[in-house]
């Protein structure tokens, strides 16, 4: 067993893990963060996507010991209390899901994409979520959801800049 110290969704944890424990299993089984799911055995599906120190990773392809000293954000940590994250809200409003199994990973990948590229083209959105497979939707409404979120997040960003400007 190896001791690790991690922050997950804003809370600190200190736990003993076996080195072979995958990050996704630590999150689900030791911390009960079952919002992050496992969809494959080959690192292809992206259902397990979380942010490790602010970057999207497939948590089935990272060892829990590798997260020692790091900050992890899962789908359970992106909402602001009862207020959904703009990407969560857009997936809901645009029907960007059917069974919902891919959704936690899709949302985490989309948030990462919009952080690096706040105004992506449709092509850039499809490339940005290339590592996430959806068996249900045909991706159309997922792309629409990311477009809606991009629009809302950039106008919210512009608004807060204006507000700061007005106050200064």
């Amino acid at each position: 067993m190896t001791q690790i110290n991690v922050r997950v969704d804003g809370a600190s944890y200190s736990d003993d893990v076996e080195p072979r424990t995958l990050l996704v299993h630590y999150l689900r089984e030791q911390l009960g963060k079952v919002g992050t799911v496992v969809g494959c055995d080959t690192s292809n599906c992206g259902a397990c996507t979380v942010h490790l120190d602010g970057e999207s990773v497939k948590s089935c392809t990272v060892l829990a010991v590798q997260a020692d000293g790091s900050e992890v954000t899962t789908i359970e940590g992106v909402a602001d209390g009862a207020t959904l994250h703009p990407v969560q809200k857009a997936f809901h409003e645009q029907h960007g899901l059917q069974c919902g199994y891919c959704t936690p990973g899709m949302i985490m990948a989309s948030i990462d994409l919009l952080k690096n590229n706040p105004d992506p083209s449709e092509h850039e959105i499809r490339e940005g979520i290339e590592g996430n497979l959806c068996r249900c939707t045909g991706y159309q409404n997922i792309v629409k959801a990311v477009q809606q979120a991009a629009g809302e997040m950039s106008s919210a960003g512009a608004h807060s800049v204006e507000t700061t400007g007005a106050q200064a």
Partner: peptide, 9 residues
């Protein structure tokens, strides 16, 4: 190569 998440690691 692969996808953004794989390219991060």
């Amino acid at each position: 190569v692969a996808d953004p998440a794989v390219r991060h690691r």
